[in-house]
């Protein structure tokens, strides 16, 4: 079944194939991300009414919520790519995990900073030892440790192995910490604001549509950045191989 095989995801484990496809895909992803971010943020910032209680400060919602979502999803993506590397030894997968980490780190930092800026006028405090806030701070530390380990190990395959194991163990501990923190302190942060399982939507439609568009924009931005950085990593790896070959000759 040649046709079915051509559609397999594992085709992209081949760096050459990955480079070709990502090169074709990247401009589209960047353009779509720019359109979504532009529409969502401009709509959200200028064409929605001020919230009854929070005033204009509610508009930081359009950055805070998407970056916070992506901060967690970036780690989840690193977990999946780490598993693929450990099980199937596809180099592109390991490099994608490496490429996603700094992006996740920056998203975590943005979520923390926008949260502080939003918390100041609405809660009256920049920082509170609330379970959600604290677990984001811990997630930030996990990203730092993960990136530092990549930097410290010289052999690229060992580095990929060690960081993958760290990512797996870290994921377990991150989840345990999340629930341990709930035990430790009751929160000030509101609950999950996107799902509406209990019938009444927690976010009104006026804010909902631009929020959805900016979330899509941030997801696309993440994809674009990870593709871009993975391409850089692959090129760096090729360059290194070429230099080594030059020296040997």
């Amino acid at each position: 079944m040649p046709k079915l095989r051509a559609m397999s995801l594992w085709e992209y484990a081949n760096p050459r194939k990955f480079m070709a496809t990502s090169a074709a895909l990247l401009p589209w992803v960047i353009a779509l991300s720019a359109i979504c971010l532009g529409t969502g943020l401009i709509w959200g910032f200028f064409f929605t009414p001020d919230e009854r209680l929070q005033g204009a400060s509610v508009k930081i919602f359009y950055i805070h919520v998407p970056t916070a979502m992506m901060a967690i999803n970036a780690w989840a993506m690193m977990l999946v790519t780490s598993l693929i590397w450990l099980i199937r030894r596809h180099h592109v997968s390991a490099l994608a995990a490496k490429a996603a980490a700094p992006v996740g780190l920056v998203f975590t930092a943005i979520a923390l900073i926008t949260g502080a800026l939003w918390g100041q006028p609405t809660w009256g405090t920049w920082w509170e030892w609330d379970p959600r806030l604290t677990s984001f701070l811990i997630l930030f530390l996990f990203y730092l440790g993960y990136i530092a380990l990549w930097e410290a190990v010289e052999n690229p395959d060992s580095a990929a192995d060690l960081t993958s194991v760290l990512c797996l163990v870290g994921s377990v501990f991150a989840i345990v910490s999340r629930y341990a923190l709930l035990f430790w302190n009751q929160g000030l942060h509101q609950g999950w604001s996107i799902s509406a399982t209990d019938g009444e939507a927690p976010v009104a439609d006026v804010y909902w549509y631009p929020a959805m568009i900016s979330i899509a924009g941030f997801v696309l931005l993440f994809v674009a950045l990870v593709l871009f950085r993975t391409r850089t990593e692959i090129r760096a790896r090729r360059l290194k191989a070429l230099i080594t070959r030059e020296r040997m000759a």
Partner: peptide, 21 residues
Amino acid sequence: LKRGGLLLSLLVLPLYVPTLL
């Protein structure tokens, strides 16, 4: 690793959070 000690604390301390808590 050559500078393992410092990295070790960066890696291990976040993992200690639940135990400490």
